[in-house]
Simulated scan of single mutants.
Amino acid sequence: MSISSNLNEIKNNIENIKSELSIERDITLIAVSKTVDSNRVLEAYNSGQLEFGENKVQELIKKYEELNNSDIIFHMIGHLQTNKVKYLVNKVKLIQSLDRLSLLKELEKRGKNNNYVFNCLIELNLAKEESKTGLHEEDLPELIEKIEECNYVKVKGLMTVAPYFEDLEKVRVYFKKLKDIYENLASKKFKNITMEYLSMGMSHDYKVAIEEGSNMIRIGTSIFGERNYD
């Protein structure tokens, strides 16, 4: 199937889920374009897709420059090295992978140097998977405390990459947990922190994520097909 057909199918699925569950909130679809060349990104864009997620800064910048004539919006969704932060000034809507104090410090420094505010999501690794990055839940209060001291970093919500299980009910546990944390934070007043985006759900599990409260899903394989990592 074509990229256009895949996008239409996912958008229809989202509308059907919303209809089934009487959901009225908007759900933002991020097309994960890692390893996908600019022509295929443009194909998705020409089919109405505006927001794209990249895992590597170098690849994001390359596409940003190649596709700079359009209103394409990029998100940084992969692990972000501190030495790459400087390249993202003015280039991303959200850094979805704020997961440690050293990164927060670098974002604040680069933001100050450029008089630029970075909008971020805190990435949580609720299953404590060693193969994945993300903040552990018990480290969240310390990060929040430091975010409140910032002038150039704003947190707009939470993100997670759930463990992969064939049995989606096992995944649901982690989405429920993230939603609980999100609601808890939303009920409190913080400086520099608002809960606008709950970014959870990928090709395999986005239906469950939406059922559990996600308002931003990140879909790659179901739009662009299997990755070629050569």
Rank of each mutant, 00 (worst) to 15 (best):
A31R: 00
V32Y: 01
S33F: 04
S33H: 04
T35K: 12
D37M: 13
S38E: 11
L42K: 13
L42R: 11
E43R: 12
E43H: 13
Y45P: 06
N46Q: 14
G48V: 02
F52L: 01
K56C: 06
Q58A: 15
L60Y: 07
L60S: 10
Y64A: 07
Y64V: 02
E66A: 09
N68K: 01
S70H: 12
D71L: 04
F74E: 00
F74W: 05
F74Y: 08
H75A: 00
M76S: 08
I77N: 00
I77W: 05
I77R: 03
G78E: 00
H79E: 01
H79R: 08
L80H: 04
L80D: 02
T82Q: 07
T82E: 06
N83M: 08
K84C: 14
V85F: 08
Y87G: 11
L88K: 02
L88D: 04
V89R: 15
V89P: 09
K93F: 09
Q96C: 12
S97Y: 03
S97W: 01
L103C: 03
L103K: 01
L104E: 04
K105A: 03
K105G: 03
L107E: 13
L107C: 08
L107D: 11
E108H: 06
K109P: 05
K109H: 09
R110M: 15
K112E: 12
K112T: 08
K112F: 10
N114M: 10
N115C: 11
Y116F: 15
Y116H: 14
Y116G: 09
N119W: 15
C120Y: 12
I122E: 13
E123P: 04
N125W: 01
A127H: 01
E129Q: 01
E130K: 12
S131F: 03
K132Y: 00
K132S: 04
G134P: 02
G134E: 00
G134R: 00
L135Q: 06
L135P: 05
L135D: 04
D139Y: 10
P141H: 10
P141L: 13
E142T: 11
L143P: 11
I144Q: 06
I144K: 08
K146Y: 12
E148M: 07
C150D: 13
N151F: 05
N151T: 09
V153D: 11
V153H: 13
V153S: 12
V153C: 14
V153P: 13
K154S: 14
K154E: 14
K156I: 14
K156S: 15
G157L: 15
T160L: 04
V161T: 01
V161G: 00
A162K: 02
P163N: 03
